[in-house]
Amino acid sequence: MTQKNNRLTSAYRRIYRRVYMVLSIVLCIFIIGTLLWTVSYLPPYGDTNTPTHNEVADRYVSQGLTETGATNIVAGMILDYRAFDTLGESFVLFTAFCSCLIILQGSEFVKQHRPDKYRTFDDNILRYTMYVIVPMVMLFGVYVLLNGHLSPGGGFSGGAILGAGLVLMSLAFGHNTVSRFLTPHRIRVITCCSLCFYCLAKSYSFFTGANGLHSIIGPGVAGNILSGGLILPLNIAVGCVVACTMYSFYCLFERGDLK
């Protein structure tokens, strides 16, 4: 009885595989054709009169500098006009961090299945190269983070560079070196404080802006490091969240724990 059942299910499975492959190929060809057909009717590349280049973009480009005080128009846009969008992004990252923590923390599995040869890095060449590279990476990350309103960069890119520096450090000198100053408790405190600060600061700025009240934070002189109103502190907050999250992802996937 069970043997007959098994034979039946395997036959069904073979038929299912064949139908699935045929349908997949048809679907792929259909989607590629439809999308390419749509692209062929889009306005020409680089055209100024397309529907995407409307008055919103014009306003950002022409008034962005005087209203936000940031020479980097994109930073002024994502951290001033559309700051709640960026707050949502930070919360998406924070939610992913929490989910990974719930799913992976404390699982002995990651620890068990790690090959032994990757466990320690007792290598002098690597360590002495990292003595040179890690400070430079960290310094570059801080530079990108603090100059987000003046030059290309900002919280997300600077935070990602800082996180990469932390991962390099943890790889070369062992994770005890990093967890000496970045304990799991501190990671949580930094992330939560940054998100709360972002919420409060931007709520204040939106409240005063919407009600026509005088805000104590002005745009400042464009081009200075201390300008752009709230953009610099918000960049720092976002950068802290991103750096902590990147390093925690690495820790969780590498040894299944933040410690």
Partner: peptide
């Protein structure tokens, strides 16, 4: 500048989703 900001949003969301998928795969 608007599509640049949207791409930034997309990159962050994709990183988060990838991390979540990888941990579920584990």
């Amino acid at each position: 500048p608007i599509p640049s900001g949207l791409v930034l949003t997309g990159i962050v969301v994709s990183v988060s989703v990838t991390a979540l998928m990888l941990s579920l795969t584990v």
